[in-house]
Design a protein around this nucleic acid. Structure first.
Lengths: 147, 147
DNA sequence: GTTGAAAATGCTAGCCT
DNA sequence: AGGCTAGCATTTTCAAC
């Protein structure tokens, strides 16, 4: 499937996706076109899902990160999933083991935004109960870097 | 600080960071060099923290996502932070309100990996107590896309 | 996987508004 | 001051080996 050189290439590009293929090629000891071919394959295989940016949420006016445990009524699970995948403020949504069914990461401009979100979800019957924690600070949000 | 065009540019690049500046320029209605200049500024200001990849964890052999609530002894907080920022399996670490002090996202190859992690942390006295939940499935892990 | 040449892209400087 | 145009340098892509 994928070998150590693929992992190395993905690691270098995860650190800085603007590195030229030539530079990467030098680091891994292959030719530019061999690297080009491997990157193409990694994208085709879905190993690389996208080339993207890591943006500072504060700079976008979204300093608040709310971690929301939620119970979703079985009957509304479909609707909940559709909503969660389309809402721009939801950066993550995991179906989890334990007392709650979902863990949602919500970015908001302020606490009113969090309250409005919960109000809407509950009003629409997408969430039955919830418990919210706030991130006081974030030590780390790292892209997954292959080793 | 940053205006709507900056947000639009960041949004386009967050969707696909390999878009050419020319393409972005066309979409936002500016010249290539104006866009180049703005991107440079966004990076310099720290709005764009890095150009990176979204890599499928499963493809890297890390299918397990553990969500770990942890209590860190006050005396070891410094050491905990140093460790958390350097461990490659920790993709996120937030200091949170509520019953626990930290929420850790840990990627592992299997449950043994999670156990080993907790064993090491507790052995080193970096975590006093913890509670772990597993992500059964992930509906969404989106990069924060400006709107 | 490699090499080398053609095409596309990004960079920079000077001009214009 | 910030955006535009054009020419130069780099990078990516493609074909033949």
């Amino acid at each position: 499937m994928i070998d150590d050189i693929d992992r190395e290439i993905a690691g270098l590009l995860a650190e800085d996706a603007r590195r030229s293929l030539t530079e990467v090629a030098g680091q891994v000891g292959l030719s530019t076109s061999a690297v080009n071919e491997r990157v193409r394959r990694l994208v085709a295989q879905g190993v690389i899902r996208r080339f993207t940016l890591d943006v500072a949420p504060e700079a976008l006016g979204l300093p608040v990160l709310a971690l929301i445990w939620a119970d979703v009524p079985h009957a509304r699970e479909e609707a909940f999933r559709a909503f969660a995948t389309s809402h721009p403020g939801i950066t993550e949504c995991h179906h989890v083991t334990g007392a709650w069914s979902y863990l949602i990461h919500l970015r908001a401009a302020n606490l009113d935004g969090v309250e409005a979100f919960l109000g809407q979800m509950k009003g629409d019957g997408l969430i039955a109960r919830s418990e919210t924690m706030l991130a006081l600070s974030t030590l780390r949000t790292a892209p997954l870097v292959p080793r």
